[in-house]
């Protein structure tokens, strides 16, 4: 078995299994820790608050936007760009089809390139702020930097593989994807799942109080 076969075959299966099991374990672990039932008489619904809290924090608030605009622009650019290129890139759809048998309409090539550029620009803004902004520098740790670099390398090698000119370029992309999948559940990249719980808990607390800031 060649390099490409290995990273797309056994290594990918192992990485995907580690990703799925460890991520599920971590989320399940958080849910299992539980929370004491609140017996104060409620004024509103905790469940509605859980949902509202999740939706509300997707949107930045005007009053803070002037102070945090770089972050808002960088954050949205990166996350939306990544979402689009991951789910609507033609190669990704083919790849998903190969494993899950489902597919949908991909973005045209120019759309994919635009989404990638937006995602790159966002990621770079966030990363530069990580060491240039005194607040972010103070609170950032090794995990933040590794997560950023790995994501960057996955995206970069993905772009290099886009031409389909060399199989090995696709292999390098897949190698980074495999490493990223293995690293993901042990790192802060898990925020992609844990945000639901965190926003939801706060939303539920406020929801019981009949409000949701």
């Amino acid at each position: 078995m060649g390099f490409v076969g290995f990273v797309e075959g056994p290594l990918f299966y192992i990485a995907a299994a580690i990703f799925a099991l460890a991520a599920a374990w971590r989320v399940f672990g958080l849910i299992r820790m539980g929370r004491k039932p609140d017996i104060s008489p409620p004024k509103g619904s905790a469940t509605a608050g859980f949902i509202k809290g999740n939706l509300r924090h997707f949107l930045p608030r005007g009053m803070f936007a002037r102070r945090t605009w770089i972050h808002i622009v960088g954050g949205y650019a990166f996350h939306l760009g990544l979402f689009v290129l991951f789910f609507f890139g033609a190669f990704h759809i083919d790849f998903i089809k190969q494993y899950l048998g489902i597919s949908w309409t991909p973005l045209p090539r120019w759309g994919f390139i635009l989404a990638s550029e937006i995602a790159f620009a966002g990621l770079i803004v966030l990363w530069v702020r990580r060491f240039s902004d005194p607040v972010m520098r103070l609170i950032s740790d090794r995990d933040d930097h590794i997560g950023t670099w790995l994501t960057f390398l996955v995206m970069l090698t993905g772009c290099l593989a886009l031409q389909q000119s060399h199989e090995v370029l696709r292999g390098i992309h897949m190698l980074f994807v495999d490493i990223w999948l293995i690293y993901f559940p042990f790192s802060r990249l898990m925020h992609a799942f844990t945000f639901v719980l965190s926003r939801g808990h706060t939303g539920a607390t406020y929801g019981r109080k009949g409000m949701n800031p």
Partner: peptide, 9 residues
């Protein structure tokens, strides 16, 4: 969940 979700932004 708060500790896990903080992205150090």
């Amino acid at each position: 969940s708060f500790f896990e979700a903080c992205v150090h932004c």
